[in-house]
């Protein structure tokens, strides 16, 4: 081993980066070479000055807090959901007030709006944690029987995979204090919750599209079923979903 080779390997030796074989070679060279032995001593002396010194810095608490505070809010999907949740919190407060009767007269006209609010809140809840589906399957023949005995009427479960909407599963949710079927579909990264409950009348009403707390809700009524499709999908895609579902239902 030459001194040039040894010089750089001395650092690796001091840093504990050499395997046993190489370390032995370097040490053998140092034992026979006074120059390299001197270099190694200097290196260890410098190290002795650096290592015991307080050279680190502790991150100040305010920095830690700021980062922790900013982290979830800095992610766009979380940010929009947080904002939507705030909006909903107000809606829920209004609903709670309504229950006292004070706002009854006002809210009576807004019955439809209140149900929409609850539908959107149920959609939001479903996106939190593991709340999305109680039965997880892309097979409509698994999902539909799951509702048997859980609801008074079995909801329509359609396979729309060929139409670009993947069935993920289903769960029971609560809207207006009543259990309601929620069937979950996915379009790319977007989740669609389709809520359905039996209607009092068998008639049909045309679909309406509304935007609430940043989500789109398409509601309609056909074959004696009330349906609400909720998603952050664009309105035209959500309309497409509704139409594909209706087509499958009619078929």
């Amino acid at each position: 081993m030459t001194c040039d080779e040894a010089t750089i390997l001395l650092h690796a030796l001091v840093d504990g980066e050499l395997d046993a074989g190489n370390a032995r070679e370097v040490e053998a060279h140092v034992a026979a070479c006074p120059d390299c032995a001197a270099t190694l001593r200097e290196l260890r002396a410098l190290r002795g000055a650096i290592r015991p010194a307080d050279l680190r810095y502790a991150a100040p608490d305010h920095l830690r807090r700021t980062i922790e505070g900013k982290l979830p809010a800095s992610a766009p999907p979380v940010a929009s959901r947080r904002a939507a949740l705030k909006g909903f919190a107000f809606g829920a407060a209004a609903s709670a007030l309504a229950a006292t009767g004070l706002l009854f007269i006002v809210t009576r006209d807004d019955e439809r709006q209140r149900v929409l609010d609850e539908i959107v809140s149920a959609h939001l809840r479903s996106l939190q944690g593991d709340h999305l589906a109680d039965v997880v399957s892309s097979d409509q023949h698994t999902v539909k029987p799951w509702f048997n005995g859980r609801l008074a009427a079995s909801p329509p479960v359609m396979d729309l995979t060929a139409q670009g909407f993947t069935l993920l599963g289903a769960r029971i949710d609560f809207v207006d204090a009543r259990p309601i079927a929620a069937i979950v579909y996915r379009r790319r990264v977007h989740i669609i919750n389709l809520f359905c409950e039996p209607a009092a009348s068998p008639g049909e009403t045309a679909a309406t599209m509304q935007s609430l707390h940043g989500f789109n809700v398409r509601s309609w009524h056909e074959k004696g079923i009330h349906l609400w499709a909720v998603s952050d999908l664009a309105p035209d895609e959500l309309r497409d979903f509704g139409e594909k579902f209706s087509a499958a239902l009619t078929r």
Binding site: R56, A59, I67, G129, D130, A133, V189
Partner: peptide, 29 residues
């Protein structure tokens, strides 16, 4: 309960927690 993960939409909350868990211990460094 059955847990579904995958896709950004449902993962957002868990992502922040996981990130904090692995990244914050290195804050001093």
């Amino acid at each position: 309960h059955l847990v579904m993960t995958g896709g950004r939409e449902f993962d957002a909350g868990g992502k922040a927690d996981r990130f904090k868990q692995v990244a914050l211990p290195h804050l001093d460094a």
